[in-house]
Amino acid sequence: MIEMKHVSFGYDTGKTVLDDVSFTIGEGECVGLIGANGAGKSTIMKLLAGILFGEGEVLIGSTPVKKDTLYEVRRKLGYVLQNSDHQMFMPTVYEDMIFAPRNYGISKEETEKRIDAVLEKLDLTELKHSRNHKISGGEKRMAAIAVILAMEPEVILMDEPTASLDPYNRRIVINAVNSLPQTRLITSHDLDMILDTCSRVILLDKGKIIAEGRAEDILSDRQLLEAHRMELPLSYTGR
């Protein structure tokens, strides 16, 4: 469903951000992309979404991510940004939710059906007509996920979905992520969340894939994590 083949990316300054990165994510799989700051996680997300373009091949489904295929790619792909304030740019949750379906030519009736179904699934019906600046951080994060789900994407990219959330809202987001049938790629420093949601993990450092495998195996490897400026998730430290 998601494929990166020998992808490299560098900025004009000559700094290499990604160096020959290749991985595949199957349909319906939930994969965690972990690494310290500056490892290249966000760059991978941006390459998958067609915000950046590098060397090598990037595929969403069978569609290569290129400038002339962006419309098709983005129709299949939902990207939950790290900062919900940037994601929720319309005045109300409802207006944000209809934004993508209407842009993709989905009828008014179908859009309404989708919105109601998504809000009910995420238990957010009460927020439907709320103003974005009036809802809490946790609600906004959930609404940002709802906004993406209203697109009915085949692939969901999530950038730090639990960042700055309190434990209660963090658990709500984790449950929501787990309930999704779509192919998901999640970047996060919250390794406990990755452990709770992802079956597979890709560890990235300095633009290279260091390790890839079962979440339990990688996230319990203290030596590996510490060698790449990370720590064991709290669930494995016994604290």
């Binding site: 979404a49 962006l70 129709r75 939902g78 940004l81 940037h86 740019f89 934004f99 842009n103």
Partner: peptide, 22 residues
């Protein structure tokens, strides 16, 4: 910077220069 991110968020959700008003 912020406007740029918002613009990206709009494009990621299929915006191509035409607003649908509600």
């Amino acid at each position: 910077d912020r406007a740029d991110e918002i613009w990206q968020a709009m494009q990621l959700r299929g915006y191509h220069g035409h607003f649908h008003y509600v």
